[in-house]
Design a binder for these strands. Structure first.
Length: 353
DNA sequence: GACTTGTTAACAATTACTTCA
DNA sequence: CATGAAGTAATTGTTAACAAG
């Protein structure tokens, strides 16, 4: 009981004076990180094919498509700094060795056993050309051949389970540019359809499998962060609930003490007594209690099961929403000595907001 | 139409590698 | 230099949706 009604209370507090709660929640919602929503959105987009992605998938990596991403990122794809950085590092994790470049007809990430496995398995042993360049606006010419060659490193696709030579998997490190590009793409679509995946992979000179894995891991990270946010929010809710519960118990004790001392309301009809949802004073308008009753009657189990959903709803609600804890307390038969037939005195004025 | 089977994609959990303090 | 922690690419197993037979 306390849980359900106090949850609403906590939300009200959040609305009123704890923007950080709302913020945390808002971040999650804004990020589209909720799994169901995310999945649905992603799958819808898979079907419908949203604007740029549709064009991207249809026309493969068109320069205009690529540039839109780049411009939004503020990246310069044949980046001199990146190139020099790559050169300084002395390796390019995705660079296709010249040997691998001669693997035409390789489709997607299905490199197969013959796709020059374990070529350049060490990130430090390759030449060091920037992967995202370069011909013209980068990515394309070199990427074409490189992508066909599977980037040179051993296949990580499940389709290449027979890649016996790659017993020890080597993990490449995506370049900052690649990561930023993927990140930017992820902001628009947290999931990819196959065409989008291939197009993106070609643009980034990665194997589609790598793009797929990146998105997969990225979704996992998003979910993890969202879980942390939710957890933090629940902690705060719990603290608020505890405090509210403590306060209610205190007030209840006071009311019990006052009960015998001040039989003030004894002459009033029980049905006219209700609780003002905003200030928690006893009022004579039954509508006040009735409006707050459904919220107060919300199942605590349900609130506990989907606290964030409830909170989101509450946050999104424009009107002040404060389930009357008193109404809840006195509405349900809980063995309290006070009932509707036993009118109660108003709470201390200090509780009125 | 109901059922089985194969394919595909997403996810969770985990492993393995890299980087850094 | 060794080491542990953190970050993350990659793998594995499971599940659901879908199409074809």
């Amino acid at each position: 009981m306390e849980l359900g009604l106090s949850l609403g209370d906590a939300v009200t507090v959040a609305d009123g004076g704890r923007p950080e709660l709302v913020l945390g929640l808002g971040v999650g919602v804004g990020a589209g990180a909720r799994r169901g929503e995310e999945d649905e959105r992603g799958r819808r987009e898979d079907v419908v094919g949203a604007g740029r992605w549709a064009a991207m998938a249809a026309a493969s990596p068109e320069p205009s498509v690529r540039l839109s991403l780049v411009s939004s990122l503020g990246l310069h794809w044949p980046s001199e700094t990146a190139r020099s950085e790559a050169a300084a590092r002395g390796f390019d994790v995705n660079r296709a060795p010249s040997v691998a470049a001669g693997a035409p007809g390789m489709e997607d990430d299905e490199e197969g056993p013959g796709a020059a496995p374990a070529l350049s398995s060490s990130p430090n042993d390759s030449g060091g050309s920037f992967p995202l360049d370069l011909s013209g606006h980068g990515l394309r010419g070199h990427a074409e051949a490189a992508a066909q060659g599977g980037g040179g490193e051993r296949s990580s696709s499940r389709a290449s389970d027979d890649d016996e030579s790659a017993s020890a998997r080597k993990k490449l490190r995506l370049s900052k540019e690649q990561s930023a590009f993927l990140e930017e793409s992820f902001k628009e679509h947290s999931t990819l359809n196959p065409k989008q995946k291939v197009a993106l992979a070609k643009q980034l000179n990665l194997r589609p499998r790598q793009v797929e894995v990146w998105f997969q891991n990225r979704r996992a990270r998003t979910k993890l962060k969202q879980t942390e946010v939710d957890c933090e929010y629940l902690k705060r809710c719990c603290e608020t609930l505890t405090e509210e519960n403590r306060r209610l118990h205190k007030e209840l004790a006071e009311l019990r003490a006052l009960k015998t001392a001040r039989p003030f309301y004894m002459h009033l009809p029980a049905t006219t007594l209700s609780m003002c949802p905003s200030c928690e004073r006893v009022a004579s308008n039954p509508a006040a209690a009735s409006t707050s009753a459904p919220a107060a009657a919300t199942s605590p189990a349900a609130a506990a099961a989907a606290p964030t959903a409830a909170a989101r709803t509450a946050v999104a609600s424009p009107e002040p929403h404060r389930p009357s804890s008193f109404a809840a307390l006195f509405a349900a038969p809980r063995g309290f000595p006070l009932t509707a037939a036993q009118p109660r005195p108003p709470p201390p004025a200090s509780n009125c907001l």
